[in-house]
Design a protein around this nucleic acid. Structure first.
Lengths: 366, 366
DNA sequence: GAGTCTGATGAATCCATAC
DNA sequence: GGTATGGATTCATCAGACT
């Protein structure tokens, strides 16, 4: 064995729950190792007593000097730190989801932008059965906001467009999601019958989010794991998870929950894919294989233009030469054109799109 | 008459449109004189190149100079200044609404909090007819966010709870509002037929907002008046307005528009009370919500065919993949098929139509 | 006139790969 | 890394032409 002087990278603790402070825990993991982070951070008010000021003095919940300004300052410092630790962990094409309400989500979103995350969407979780506003002083607070962001501008983030479109019966998925809150049998209870966690998220929310922005085998990290909804859905869907949770009582509930989860069979985890994922077929191959003859005439779908096939797989039409796409774009005066769906050839008196021939070749490849 | 040595307060320019920079204009008005501010500031969209629809037509982007900022810092400085000027203008029990998208709304919300405004709700405007995502790279950006805040914590802001409940057919108004975007006859055009303003807001949105949070006779100020939707609805509803608009071309359109408006125009009521259609439930939601498991087998009602559920809400059966409707139609050799009544799942030894699950979801939504 | 078809358009941070 | 090119991608609504 050759001598290896590089520092050994720490191993990822896949499918386990780490304890302790999430910032320290994240900083102990190797840089650029996680595909997706889902984070449901605590809100402002719940942080009193849990947080330290920037100078490390503990914030006292009953301290009279606590005011609005201190409160935001401390929350922003906390947000900055954990978002930076999260960003370090992400692979270059990784992405993050954060969820919050109007109490904290504006600070989350602004800090994401400040750190160089690139916002992709804000998504509204529209609760189909929210708690009513009993005092009648405001609108029923019937939604929470999720922010989806890539690590950098221009990153090639994962988005399973076709699968989401399928989930929505053929119409592209919108930025507003109507889903019920977590209650009934899904809501975890303690022995005494109280709810095990105050803000347990519904599995349906994580299902949609993980189907949309991860692939089977991806690593999903949740720094505020709670009772482990992220891990549970990740496991069902064949993704690896890493949870971080500082409260032992939540870790215990999550451990038990995760043990009983089974992965769905992998056939069911395959999702609809787009044409982009199909192998590329050069048009010239249709000519080489004799599916189209050199000299044969193609017509545009709208019938307005014609062009002739040449032996090298280019077209000539109306003084223009070039690829099926270039000639189509030129004839239509369009910025671009998909030649596969634009051109047709004649068989048995019918005009058939040449894309049919490409599909034949692709079918043979499988 | 007794001698009055106090400085004469400037008179409020009610029901007029001021020109010039909105910060200077606001600072020229008397402190604590306005009941409500509605502000639709530039969003700071950071658009890169051109965008074409699949039919090759070009999207008319918002690329006006007034939406260009060099950095977040410049945008934040601008936001801080106009929000401070606005806060000075508000009466002690006054309130503000701001609207934005994910590009800017997090910065707006954070700065509102920083200045001591007290957030009351964030309200989601869910557009019933948004522009689609043409490249299939993100979720359809189908909503914008409004933030409603009082001048201070503890202020006695106006909220017409009962009026809102009546507008919503007797049900408490929620924080998500489904309203169409502004198009058709309501959309103001120039002589050449082009839209007069790239981001005209619908009257229905302002109608709901003013009914909810102002009383007749209140003074409503809009520092980014544009073509004057705020003024138009305020006038209809018997509120006084003050508009501020920098661009002469928009002021001219707004002046003309406002002249033709009559108080208590019944048209305004009509647009705001559009009926809700029966909600569409995508089959995928049964999977997300755990009512059916990925991998679970469905049987056709006639018992002749079977298919398996996938995680994205599609079915696989006999080499066919697709929606519940597509797979059903294919297996029956029929041109179409209602998958909801065709497929059944097994519970307690019984075959139950999946439509039962859809009915369950619809019941929860009402 | 009623129904049908075609075209236009809306606050948009909207491509991937090979050379 | 920049450049060139293949080729993938849309929903609701309204106006106006056409049957």
């Amino acid at each position: 064995m050759t001598k290896n002087t590089r520092k050994e990278a720490p191993v990822l603790p896949l499918n386990t729950i780490m304890s302790g402070d999430c910032i320290e825990a994240m900083n102990s993991l190797p840089e650029g190792s996680v595909d997706l982070i889902f984070a449901d951070p605590p809100y402002n008010l719940q942080l009193r007593g849990d947080l330290h000021r920037p100078d490390n003095s503990k914030v006292d919940a009953v301290d009279d000097s606590w005011d609005q300004f201190d409160s935001f300052k401390v929350y922003d410092d906390f947000t900055r730190e954990w978002l930076a630790a999260a960003r370090r962990l992400l692979k270059p094409n990784g992405a993050i989801w954060v969820i919050g309400s109007y109490h904290n989500v504006f600070r989350l979103g602004a800090e994401l932008q400040n750190q160089g995350y690139w916002l992709l969407n804000d998504v509204v979780w529209r609760k189909s059965n929210p708690m009513p506003n009993f005092r009648g002083k405001r609108f029923t607070n019937a939604h929470e906001t999720l922010i989806w962001a890539s690590k950098n501008e221009g990153a090639k983030y994962t988005f399973n467009y076709e699968a989401l479109k399928a989930l929505n019966e053929g119409i592209q998925m919108r930025s507003d999601w109507v889903l019920p809150i977590c209650n009934g049998g899904e809501r975890l209870k303690n022995e005494d019958g109280d709810k095990a966690h105050p803000t347990q998220k519904p599995q349906s929310l994580l299902h949609r989010l993980l189907i949309a922005t991860t692939n089977p085998g991806d690593v999903v990290l949740d720094p505020f794991f709670g009772t482990g909804t992220t891990g549970a859905v990740a496991k069902m869907l064949g993704r690896d998870y890493i949870g971080i949770e500082r409260e032992e009582k939540y870790r215990k509930v999550a451990e038990k929950r995760l043990k009983s989860i089974r992965k769905f069979d992998s056939e069911a985890l395959k999702v609809s894919t787009s044409k982009r994922a199909e192998p590329r077929v050069p048009f010239g191959q249709l000519v080489e294989r004799g599916m189209l003859r050199p000299g044969e005439e193609l017509s545009s779908l709208n019938g307005r233009h014609k062009a002739k096939v040449r032996a090298d797989g280019t077209l000539v039409g109306n003084d223009v030469k070039g690829s099926i796409h270039q000639v189509g774009a030129h004839l239509e005066g369009a910025p671009s054109c998909n030649g596969w769906t634009y051109w047709t050839y004649k068989r048995d008196g019918q005009n058939v799109p040449i894309d049919l021939l490409r599909q034949q070749i692709r079918a043979e490849m499988n």
